[in-house]
Simulated scan of single mutants.
Amino acid sequence: MRRFFSRDVAKDLGYFVNGRIFKLQNEYTRRDGGTPSSRAALARLRRDLDGGAPVWMSIGADLFEDWPQTLPSAEEDPAALRAAKTALELYALHQQSRRSGVAQGAEDAGKNRMTFGRACRLINPDTEHANGVKRRLQAVEAAPDFNGVVRNVRSLIMLMRTAGDGAITLDYRSLAQDLYQIQFPEARGEVFMRWSMDYSSDAGTRSRRS
Rank of each mutant, 00 (worst) to 15 (best):
G51Q: 15
N26W: 06
E89R: 15
D198R: 06
G19R: 07
M114P: 05
P72C: 12
I59R: 05
M158N: 12
R7T: 00
L170F: 13
I168L: 10
R161S: 09
R7G: 14
A61S: 14
A167R: 09
V140D: 07
N152Y: 02
T162V: 13
A10P: 07
Q177F: 03
L179I: 13
V149T: 06
D165V: 10
D50F: 04
R194V: 02
R39V: 06
P68V: 05
S196Y: 08
G14V: 06
G189P: 12
F22V: 12
P72L: 10
N152T: 03
G148P: 09
S58H: 08
G60L: 10
E65L: 11
F16R: 01
M158R: 11
A61C: 11
G110Y: 11
R136A: 11
V9M: 07
Y180A: 09
R39T: 04
S37V: 10
R173Y: 05
F22K: 15
A103Q: 03
K11Y: 14
I59D: 05
R208A: 13
N26I: 01
L81T: 13
E190V: 12
P54F: 01
P185L: 08
R118V: 09
F192S: 04
I21T: 02
A176T: 12
L24V: 09
R194L: 08
S97E: 10
S58K: 11
V17N: 03
P78R: 01
E89P: 00
R39E: 11
S73W: 02
Q69E: 14
Y91M: 07
E65Y: 11
D108S: 15
R118Y: 12
Y28G: 10
S155H: 06
W56S: 15
F16N: 01
L63F: 12
S38G: 01
Q181W: 01
V149W: 02
P144Q: 06
I59C: 13
G189E: 15
I59W: 02
L88F: 03
Y199H: 05
G148M: 10
G33Q: 12
G110E: 02
A139D: 13
Q138E: 14
D8E: 12
S37D: 15
G51N: 15
A103L: 00
R188V: 09
M57I: 12
A92Q: 04
A10N: 06
R121Q: 11
N124D: 15
D126R: 05
Q138F: 08
S58I: 11
V102P: 09
A119N: 05
G33D: 09
G52D: 15
M193L: 15
R194M: 09
G189R: 14
A53C: 00
A130P: 06
E89H: 09
F5V: 04
I123Q: 03
I59H: 03
L63D: 00
S73Y: 02
A119L: 04
P36E: 08
A139S: 15
W67Y: 12
G14Y: 02
I157T: 07
A84Y: 01
N112T: 11
A203S: 15
S97D: 13
R31F: 10
S196L: 11
L93V: 10
D8R: 07
G117R: 05
L45D: 05
L122F: 01
P125F: 06
E65V: 08
R3P: 00
R2W: 04
R206Q: 14
M160T: 04
F5S: 06
R154S: 08
P68S: 04
A187Q: 07
A167I: 04
S100F: 11
